[in-house]
Design a protein around this nucleic acid. Structure first.
Lengths: 250, 250
DNA sequence: CGAATAGTGTCTTTCAGACATTATCTG
DNA sequence: CAGATAATGTCTGAAAGACACTATTCG
């Protein structure tokens, strides 16, 4: 059956409707570790399993707007703090059997946020938490969310290479050391402090100086660090490439 | 209204169903120019406008499978030739008013194919053609397909930088000059022949020698070129970066 | 033969990475 | 003062880009 023949007998109303949901892989830095926002499902299927925050797209709502709404609901955030969160579309997942109830296509999004309060307060979720990404393996995840999360993490690692989005994990003003900590955490690699410092300052538009410094040195000594804010670059040129990716090339 | 309140009053059946379509930005090389597969719409809305090949996702069909089916129908291809076409998900488009009839979410895909026969034969389309990308501006495109195409072209330009997918625009055996023509055409930039040649051969796994050469030299003279086939690399390391992208950085 | 092309060589500049050094701050 | 850290400097090797050059083939 070709498309013409198919359409001749196909009326969308004849088939169970396809539901469209938006899900959000929301990442943040807490206590030096990468955390992911999860909610616990209170109803079948996958009752009691952990899942990405998400839900049906509302009528007259754009996909990314839906993702931002879901993020706002789960984090209890609004206004300027919500607007500062980076949000982009990740990918869509539509395997026919990914939801046992009906055909559901999920448009997944990826969010980078600075340290946020616990989601419980102000949230409508049955239960929600920021889970360290390192603790993911021990959780039962609903649907194909394990795959979605893995895709999101890989996208995040890649985005840090050629965009300045690492700054979105930090407050408006930050030190180069804090920025390096973001890279080390997302990439799971220690980086050379001196080389990283020189590199960040040499990429045009990555960071710009505030002219101020931290009030105190580090907790274990050292001079006060200069403070920077995000620059106006949208792409890093040259990029900050992850070291030693030979293994993943083939 | 938060999510809990919304769901309390929300029954998916109460709203017009959301239709999910797959559309394909299919690119190929013809006569040294980048071409795009378009079909002319025979019914409203946008009757007579040109559009990307695509259609409803069938039940029990994965999103990418649907895209490959649409591609097969429009190109009249099957079997090994169809399987050699690179196909990946591009992005989803779901603005509430993108289709005047009803809410439609389109999951767009991106395809790279070697030179293919004209689509008219074996196709079910009202009218279909390979249009040079350079001629796009003069066409009225349906829906938000102009935006989808622009996103697809940018993805293609980017993919050529860090993946060996340029080989997917060529037949199984090709010369370095043919490969360079792909880069020059997609990027819209002449490249330095000598430097490109050395670079391609130095990237591990990009191409591998067949040990053979072309039967004849170029039409305007020159020695016979060695033939290569795609190597086993999935990522180019180091990457082939587009020259001079400073303008697009900010 | 003349022109065009495939393929290689050379030089310079840029950049990443290893390592060293200095100054500053905490405890 | 001892140790840690911010920030900068030095050196080496890899790689990109500009350019030159040789060999081969077509017309």
């Amino acid at each position: 059956m070709n498309e013409q023949e198919f359409l001749a007998v196909y009326d969308p109303q004849d088939y169970p409707a396809i539901a469209v949901t938006v899900d959000v892989v929301a990442l943040t830095m807490r206590e030096g570790a990468l955390h992911l926002l999860l909610v616990r499902r209170g109803v079948p299927p996958f009752e009691g399993h952990w899942a990405l925050p998400g839900g049906f797209v509302h009528p007259d709502e754009d996909l990314t707007a839906g993702a931002r709404r879901e993020l706002a609901e789960e984090t209890g955030l609004g206004g300027e703090r919500l607007r500062r969160i980076h949000l982009e579309q990740l990918a869509s997942y539509g395997a026919p059997d990914r939801d046992p109830r009906m055909r559901v296509v999920s448009v997944a999004h990826l969010a980078f946020a600075p340290d946020l309060p616990d989601p419980a307060a102000g949230s409508d979720a049955d239960e929600a938490l920021w889970l360290p990404v390192s603790a993911l393996a021990s959780r039962q995840l609903a649907f194909d969310h394990a795959r979605v999360i893995e895709d999101g993490l890989e996208r995040a690692r890649s985005k840090l290479e050629y965009t300045p989005l690492a700054t979105r994990f930090l407050d408006a003003e930050f030190t180069v050391t804090e920025l390096r900590a973001v890279y080390e955490t997302v990439w799971g690699h220690p980086l050379h402090p001196g080389n990283f410092h020189r590199k960040v300052l040499s990429v045009p538009g990555f960071v710009e100086s505030t002219g101020t410094s931290t009030e105190r040195g580090g907790t274990r000594g050292g001079p006060r660090a200069k403070l920077y804010r995000a620059g106006d670059a949208r792409l890093l040129h040259p990029a900050l490439l992850r070291p030693d990716r030979e293994e993943t090339v083939r």
